[in-house]
Design a protein around this nucleic acid. Structure first.
Length: 422
RNA sequence: GGAGAGAUGGCAGAGUGGUCGAUUGCGGCGGUCUUGAAAACCGUUGACCUUCACGGGUCCGGGGGUUCGAAUCCCUCUCUCUCCGCCA
């Protein structure tokens, strides 16, 4: 959520920057400013009213002690009038406040100055790439490899649960376990503190990280207890710090977590969902950092560099992309996507997304710190996948095929898998 | 699931209708003393809205109510603890 104070002071800037995200904000912004104006004048009226009521209440107390009942009664009559007035003002006030908030949650985050204008994935900017893209003729897409070697069974998953919930069998099950440990150990080495979070969160948490209200349909909901299955560990990880004021020496906060992730992926269909490319349940190791506004872009670079080393260790060809305004998420100010080239299906697969949310999440979270001047100020939150498993597994199965039809396990992973070939 | 107790500032813990936004202790910060430190002593120390400022207002788990006046009384929700039941 964009902070109201910032919007009040920089309305034109907000409107102009949101154009990069192809969002027409001018109507919303002027509405908010009008509501805010009357909200503040109502607040003044209400404060004055309460001030008088408070004063009278104290006077009545004194009069009662002195036994001056009649005089007290006169003052009581005055408060009765004030209370009626206060009630109307209050109603007006809160309807203004609600109106502001309703509009405010509709505004996406302001994109960073480096974000290119654009409408879709075609307008994204490739900022880095490495790895060998040559295509041996015998390479198969991972779903064919899985079928041939009986590694992943999609049909049984459908029988158990539904489409998008495959079962992993034998060596590929262990490969997944190995990847989780590999990712976690790397994160620990980079000084992230590991968390095991709950897989369900309440409404407040889902709202604070921005899943509600805009992405409600994307989450599985347990209606009986009004809980949401987490679409990513980002939600519990970031919400740890909801309603907190951190000290300077606590920063930056660095957390990593493994979790299963649950996504309904409502509205997605077609060739993109083939095999492991898009699942309803998948495993992921997530990294989250919380830092001061001055440092957040340095931290974003640090996180980007960290994810890069993971892909290098997995010996996968990849590229880093700076998302254009139109392709960015609602909450992000700057996002780098990591795409791995899956040679079997000859396709770039998004395996990580590293974002700086600046204070957009922190504003909803009420996550602040005391700066050097002793002022409380919103922090910046960042997160990244490091990494999501299914597409990495797909890429490993597709890119590390040998001529004999086996799958080679990269050196860095072998100590975790205990085998060199599948 | 049943019965009971509780939720107060960074922490501990008073306060049961009237200058209480809250006694006190610890912790934090500043100072005196000291070569330095400790101890002792003095001062200071919550968040939010609003105002150029002075100031005003809100917040004692959340929401609602009673009252001229609520941390204090009532209702409700959430959470925590104790006991019983069930259970990996």
């Amino acid at each position: 959520m964009i902070s109201l104070a910032f919007l009040r002071e920089n309305p034109d800037f907000v409107i102009e920057r949101l154009r990069i995200k192809n969002f027409q904000a001018s109507e919303y912004v002027s509405q908010i400013i009008n509501y805010d104006k009357s909200r503040r004048s109502l607040q003044k009226q209400l404060d004055d009213n309460f001030a008088e009521q408070n004063k009278i209440a104290k006077e009545i107390g004194i009069l009662f002690k002195e036994g001056k009942k009649e005089e007290a009664q006169l003052l009581k009559d005055r408060t009765a009038v004030l209370k009626v007035e206060a009630k109307t003002i209050e109603e007006n006030f809160s309807s203004n406040e609600n109106a502001i908030n309703e509009i405010l949650v509709l505004l996406p985050n302001i994109p960073h100055s480096s974000v290119p204008k654009g409408y879709s994935a075609e307008d994204n900017e490739v900022v880095y790439s490495e790895g060998d893209l040559t295509l041996p003729s015998y390479f198969l897409p991972h779903w064919e490899v899985c079928e041939k070697k009986k590694l992943i069974n999609f049909e049984i998953g459908s029988k158990l649960t539904g489409a998008g919930f495959p079962i992993y069998i034998g060596k590929v099950a262990k490969l997944q376990r190995a990847l989780i440990n590999f990712f976690l150990d790397n994160a620990l080495e980079a000084n992230y503190i590991e968390i095991q979070p709950p897989y369900m969160v309440n409404e407040d948490s889902a709202f604070a990280t921005g899943q509600l209200p805009d992405k409600e349909g994307q989450m599985y909901h347990v209606s009986k207890d009004n809980l949401y299955l987490i679409p990513t560990a980002e939600v519990p990880l970031t919400n740890i710090y909801r309603n907190m004021i951190l000290k300077n020496e606590d920063l930056p906060v660095k957390h990593c977590a493994y979790s299963a992730c649950f996504r309904r992926e409502a509205g997605s269909y077609g060739k993109d969902v083939r095999g492991l490319n898009r699942l309803h349940q998948f495993d992921k190791v997530e990294i989250v950092q919380i830092t001061t506004p001055e440092n957040s872009y340095l931290i974003l670079d640090e996180m980007k560099a960290y994810v890069l080393t993971l892909l290098q260790k997995l010996e996968l060809p990849f590229r880093i992309i700076r998302l254009c305004g139109g392709d960015m998420s609602f909450t992000s100010a700057l996002t780098y996507d990591f795409e791995v080239f899956a040679k079997g299906q000859q396709k770039w697969l998004e395996v990580s997304s590293v974002s700086n949310f600046e204070n957009f999440q922190a504003n909803r979270l009420k996550l602040r710190y005391k700066n050097e001047n002793g002022k409380t100020q919103l922090l910046h939150t960042l997160n990244g996948s490091a990494l999501a498993l299914p597409r990495i597994v797909a890429a490993l199965l597709e890119n590390h095929q040998t001529e004999q039809g086996n799958i080679y396990i990269p050196k860095a992973l072998q100590v975790y898998t205990g085998f060199e070939l599948i």
